[in-house]
């Protein structure tokens, strides 16, 4: 597939993940490092339905999104009981657990070898074979995600989440249920991650656990931090910039083995540098 097509499709998918992470971490203040696990569950569910020809793409995507809503609520529930620092540890455990399941449940996920040969997405009975069509689908998914994010953030729900991030006690004193708002945010973040997973599986036609591990979760956090927390623009900028990085590295004349390590290194340096010198990211508000 043409480089630009592939770049735009992947970046669109990661924008959905950026929205998901931003909603949970940036806006609701639930510091999750397990968003890649939810992303993975969405991907495996869609792959399973399409490979077994159980149903077509859209219903499979809807089921994946619903499962990820439920899963993300379940995963973030500890955050409503244990606060801040403790939840990061819990979330870390959830991510490791998910990776273990993805890697070892060979019958369901293909284990470390992954699942090859996932059929392309189909719409209205027609398979989207050409790369242009698949890219359009991913971009449409991103567009819909951005619209939804924009709508909820300008509604009273968005204001409530921002208020919660500032002072939960004051929100309770105003007669609002903090718990309900956080569960809603987690549900929405789950729907975004699940949808991204389904698009990812059908776009690449191959998935394996390495796309849904801790490194991926941290990449998502880096995208949000670099792009900018709590804003729509930040959720779009981050993925497009960070996914361009590997391509920029290919222009530099270094061996591929070094390039992979260099990429991780640069992600790490970026994360630290932004936290220190520009915590609001390129187009965000202070985390």
């Amino acid at each position: 597939m043409d480089f630009w097509f592939s770049y735009i499709a992947l970046a669109s998918i990661y924008v959905l993940l950026g929205l998901s992470t931003n909603l949970l971490v940036g806006i609701a203040g639930i510091f999750s490092v397990s968003q890649a696990a939810v992303f993975g569950v969405g991907a495996y569910i869609v792959a399973f339905f399409l490979m077994n020809e159980t149903m077509s793409f859209l219903p499979a995507l809807a089921i994946a999104a619903l499962c990820c809503i439920a899963l993300n609520i379940l995963v973030t529930l500890p955050a409503l009981r244990v606060s801040g620092d403790y939840f990061v540890v819990t979330s870390f455990g959830i991510q490791l657990l998910a990776t273990a399941v993805f890697t070892n449940w060979t019958d369901g996920t293909g284990g470390a070898n992954g699942l090859p040969g996932i059929p392309p997405p189909d719409l209205a009975g027609k398979a989207l074979e050409s790369s242009g069509e698949v890219v359009s689908l991913c971009v449409a998914g991103m567009g819909l995600g951005c619209l939804i994010f924009w709508l909820v953030m300008r509604a009273p729900f968005g204001r409530l989440l921002r208020a919660i991030r500032e002072d939960e006690l004051a929100v309770a004193a105003a007669g609002k249920s903090v718990l309900r708002a956080k569960v809603s945010a987690a549900a929405l973040a789950g729907a975004f991650a699940g949808t991204a997973g389904g698009l990812y599986a059908t776009f690449l036609s191959f998935i394996d656990p390495s796309s849904f591990d801790l490194d991926s979760s941290i990449l998502l956090l880096t995208m949000v931090v670099v792009g900018g927390a709590r804003t729509l623009a930040g959720s779009i900028l981050g993925p497009f910039l960070l996914l361009a990085l590997p391509q920029i590295l290919t222009l530099v004349d270094i061996p591929t083995t070094v390039a992979a390590a260099a990429r991780q290194l640069i992600y790490g340096v970026l994360l630290i540098a932004f936290m220190l010198f520009r915590p609001q990211g390129l187009a965000g508000e202070k985390l």
Partner: peptide, 8 residues
């Protein structure tokens, strides 16, 4: 619109 469903 204080919950996402109505907001969307």
């Amino acid at each position: 619109g204080e919950e996402p469903v109505a907001a969307i």
